[in-house]
Design a binder for these strands. Sequence first.
RNA 1: GGGGGCGUAGCUCAGUUGGUUAGAGCGCUGCCCUGUCACGGCAGAGGCCGCGGGUUCGAGUCCCGUCGCUCCCGCCA
Length: 598
Amino acid sequence: MHRYRTHTCGALRRDDAGKTVRLSGWCHRIRDHGGVLFIDLRDHYGITQIVADPDSPAFKLAETLRAEWVIRVDGKVRLRPAGTENPELPTGEVELYVSEIEVLGPAAELPMPVAVEQDYPEEVRLRYRFLDLRREKPHNNIMLRGRVIDSIRRRMREAGFFEFQTPILTASSPEGARDYLVPSRLHPGKFYALPQAPQQFKQLIMVAGFDRYFQIAPCFRDEDARADRSPGEFYQLDLEMSFVTQEDVFAAVEPVIRGVFEEFGNGKPVTPRFPLIPYSEALAKYGTDKPDLRNPIVMQDVSEAFRGSGFKIFATILASDPAAAVWAIPAKGGGNRAFCDRMNAWAQGEGQPGLGYIFWREGEEGGAGPIAKNIGPERSRRIAEQLGLGIGDACFFVAGKRQDCIKFAGPARTRVAEELGLIAKDRFEFCWIVDFPMYEWNEEEKKIDFSHNPFSMPNIAAEDFLALDPNDKEKILSIKAVQYDLVCNGVELSSGAIRNHRPEIMRKAFAIAGYGEDVLERKFGGMLRALSLGAPPHGGIAPGIDRIVMLLAGEDNLREVVLFPMNQRAEDLMMGAPSEVSPKQLKELHIRLDLPRK
RNA sequence: GGGGGCGUAGCUCAGUUGGUUAGAGCGCUGCCCUGUCACGGCAGAGGCCGCGGGUUCGAGUCCCGUCGCUCCCGCCA
């Protein structure tokens, strides 16, 4: 007989009755009736009921067991007495009548219970993560994560991709997020950086001729956390392909993502063909570049209905600024004053002056509410017509500079849909956001900046781009990059691009953003040299593994799908990271501390 | 760096307009209980009410500060 077990705690069935077996596991729950005692013995695979009574030689020891002790039990499998089977358990038809118990790992009083489904504070859960992970939900989430990654690897290999490892200790990169730095012992005053993403490496892999790269890649960024953004480190399905257009990347990635969501999405419908939505259209219709398409509300520009109207606030805004607009958020089924007032109060809570509205009800086809009174029935009827609204519906309005009002209209659109219950929860709605602007205007520094990743290819002919006048601000700001995002249910899953593989275009692109040749050489010299020695056109994308698993697990916090997450302040409460180091270690690294005074 | 929420027993939480000795459930200790599966019953231990200061005859409760956790903004693909 094996030292610890002949079966797992999820294995025994009716057919095993009569066998003498050995199980090991944790005491999940103990029910001591005095004369008969039950232990639910738990391991990774399941739960089996152990029974002891005073006739058993193990009874005395059994009475001393407590929750979460690890024990080994020997005994005979028997059918449970008729009427006492537990249909909730796969092993519920049988039980193990115990003859011998060995305590393998006793447990002190628990800082948090394991066998209870309840919410516990993050601090306790993270400090005792190993206990938290024994619980069913966290345990299953982590197993789901592993299965998702297995499936992704299989799908990527089948699609002709090959997995590579890229360095963890690398060079600090000038663009993007703050780096995690690692001091060099051999090179006083110099530092490695942990990669924010293997961006340059994967491009170099393409230059090296490997054609199709992927990696479940750890990425490190020293930025503040959010619920959907882990502090410090996270994983991406990083991939890159040579000789491809944007369409080729979509055609490669979309089936992998869709397949994974269909495989692990518990039957929830997945968008059959991910629609392409230009960035500017996404902002106009949904008020965000990561729209939740489960929300059916589509916004529209209704400026014309307010221009020169009796609603002076909006009319004045429109008259005073050619860039101003009035944005409409239609609210089907929201046609009552209570709802409209509630939304207005919400907007005020968000620091807005309010949220103007019209609603339509029986007998007031010309619209009700203060705005309708001011603009008159003709104009409000035109608005209803433009947005396809009728009796029982409402419409909210946001006015101002386009960018400003979109910033608020997006959350308002979400809020309206949530309040009215318009969001179809049980589905995965995907889309590609395309045609991101290449540059944006930096108002503070009065200069042109890259709006995304500087490695993206501009979406105009090479000769036209090279011929651009760096002072032609309007033309430059209108240029799109071959850059795209993958969005699901309002969560940005991924960002990618067709890369700029032409050194002269790269030089021009950086020059427009105000970077001289010397800066470019210093920061990206290696990359430029690689691109000047025979680089294939290439592009890729990097879907976030953690966010994919988060969506599939139905969680709204990344920490629920990360094995050992750090807290919001980027501390590992269990391991005690970050920690101070010895003076000797610092000396070796040529580092002297200069701590902030407190 | 900024804003919101929270902080009471090992854990989850209640605690009235400021008023005597701060409560409940789970867990823990002891006792009872032979078919439970969130077993049940009786008894008990366990509190710097995050910390510091203030107002008050009196503060878990009100005010100020501070620390911690969390959500958001900034930041971040």
